[in-house]
Design a protein around this nucleic acid. Sequence first.
DNA 1: TTTTAACACGAAAACGTTTTCGCAAATTAA
DNA 2: TTAATTTGCGAAAACGTTTTCGTGTTAAAA
Lengths: 369, 369
Amino acid sequence: MFNFNKNQLNKKPQNHTPLMKRKITLKQIAKELDVSISTVSKALRNSVEISEDTRQKVQAFAKLYNYRPNNIALSLKNRKTKTIGIIIPEIVHYFFSTVITGIELVANKRGYNVIVGLSNESFDKEVINMQMLANGSIDGFILSIAKETLLQQDYHHFTETINQGMPIVMFDRVVNEIPCDKVVVDDVKGAKQAVGKLVASGCKNIAIITTKDYVSVGKLRTQGYLEALEEHKIHPKASLILKIEDKLLSDDHLDKLEKEIELLFKSNKSIDGIFAVNELYAVTAIKVARKLGLEIPKSLQVVSFTDGVLSKHSTPSLTTVSQHGQRIGEKAADLLIDRLEMDEGDEEEEEVYETVVIETDLIERESTK
Amino acid sequence: MFNFNKNQLNKKPQNHTPLMKRKITLKQIAKELDVSISTVSKALRNSVEISEDTRQKVQAFAKLYNYRPNNIALSLKNRKTKTIGIIIPEIVHYFFSTVITGIELVANKRGYNVIVGLSNESFDKEVINMQMLANGSIDGFILSIAKETLLQQDYHHFTETINQGMPIVMFDRVVNEIPCDKVVVDDVKGAKQAVGKLVASGCKNIAIITTKDYVSVGKLRTQGYLEALEEHKIHPKASLILKIEDKLLSDDHLDKLEKEIELLFKSNKSIDGIFAVNELYAVTAIKVARKLGLEIPKSLQVVSFTDGVLSKHSTPSLTTVSQHGQRIGEKAADLLIDRLEMDEGDEEEEEVYETVVIETDLIERESTK
DNA sequence: TTTTAACACGAAAACGTTTTCGCAAATTAA
DNA sequence: TTAATTTGCGAAAACGTTTTCGTGTTAAAA
């Protein structure tokens, strides 16, 4: 019934590895079975136009040769790639990698792939990366802005991308100027909660270790700290606010960080609570505090942001504000894909953008009472 | 001199956002300038076939409209995507994310993008992910094998991919059966070094906390442990070898882990050194040991594999074997791209595969004397 | 038997490039 | 002036799909 003549298939008489069979195309199947390309295509998609007989013949042949439609050709034809571009500052970072996990999860579930670009906190790399991907490789972006970009406040690459009809979803480090969907945590609220916990556990002199203000989340967490103090009628003291310039000089940066924290403790002997805007600041503070003879949580309690591997596994384990990175990623992916697939039907949708706030949770562990 | 009539450009009379200018194509430029597509293409690539005049005209117009060649069309035409597929078990993992950093670094430098798939340690997801990408989306793979795959020892998806002419580079978790380039660390040697350090620092009763043997790296590190003992004429004791079944039930897994380690200590009071095959086992061991009243490094010294965030920042900081994940990633990317670009010129290259060993380093910190 | 309808398939366009080849017009040489 | 070049550009193919439309053949209806 089916008589294929396999031998004439490969033009090259033989390939180096004996089993080598290069990816087969519709055209080759058509030639082999002596039908047209259209017929093959239709047969594989079970079109009623094709007779039962040829359909089976084609499908059997395709299966035998493990035919799979070429993705690139499909992308070109459909003018969409089913691929999402992710641009993040760095990947060796608990929070960002959990976000990617979330994105990948729903992207895969909804038939999309993810392609990752790292800005390494650099404006130029962010721009280059976006340009590389925006030329047809992807359907939309999910990104978190590089520190340098935030500092320079130059967002033209975002607006251009959006103007070319490519949707963006920003998460965590976002800016209001850009019209796009956003997924954020309520940093202010999370910080308030964290500081509130310290107050409730009896802290009277709570210091904050945070970043310089241009890092949006640092600023917001500082704001939350201040609001929490106010709410509890505690007068904030400038000397209790330590703003770190993080130049990512990770090596000597750590030394400097320790020095600055040590200075904080030494010039404020009464500190009994620390709110750190990230894990590293928190564990470093604990380290310094211990060296100075403070006991955790007895004489010093610590709360940090970002429920990462350090919080969970260092000793003492840290009470932290969990940002639910995976949930953020999932939501961002859903927002983006929804928009991509909405565009299909109704091109002139009223463009109204959403900002989704993912609730934070305070995870209590050993660093607080 | 150049008189473009921009207005006739967009077929749709107006788009929703005022500035909206969709990506422009060669065809549109050609139409607008009333020349052929070929002319536009050549003009943009500075072909000598095109007169100075038209060349400038075309280039000016292209610049004005910010023309960029469509990547997908190029991929289809050139039959290569300049994209590398990465498949790893998980991304929220210090080692893997450093490897990605390395891959991305050289990939970008050499004009490639990276697309990431997560197997989540599952055989099925690994297969699916590879199939999704192998249909034209990428030029080659860099991957580390899922635990489930290692357990089942079913590698058909790798051989099929390779037989279709798509190169693979494996790293860290590799299998010898598959003919491809590999980048590994010398786990045996690294483990020997680590255990050697413990011996040199005076440990007499060194226990190992490792994984079940099907995880290749766990097995090798155990082997290194045994070899080190032998080398120092220490008789290994089965009761000092704790093999953890890691079902990734991270929550209750941690509890169980602690229980097992506690049992280890209790039934071997004389333990004065621990070699853990990963950071988590190490910090957990320290935590348990402390609870039992042991002091680090005074009465118990600890060395672990993987120089991650826990090793650096927990207290005490950990003496670890650094695997140089970034270097691994860089090397893997170079190997893959070399092979991809070699294939171009000389299709029938003698297929000889390389296994590159990246040297480990022992980083001494506070958990050893 | 003739007309109509159903059936089965192929040609061609389109997605956006690059590149080979051919062909007119303009320039130079004879 | 005629012949031989050079110059400048366009047509078309190719990459691998999907889909619309047209058409010849066969079966059913008149």
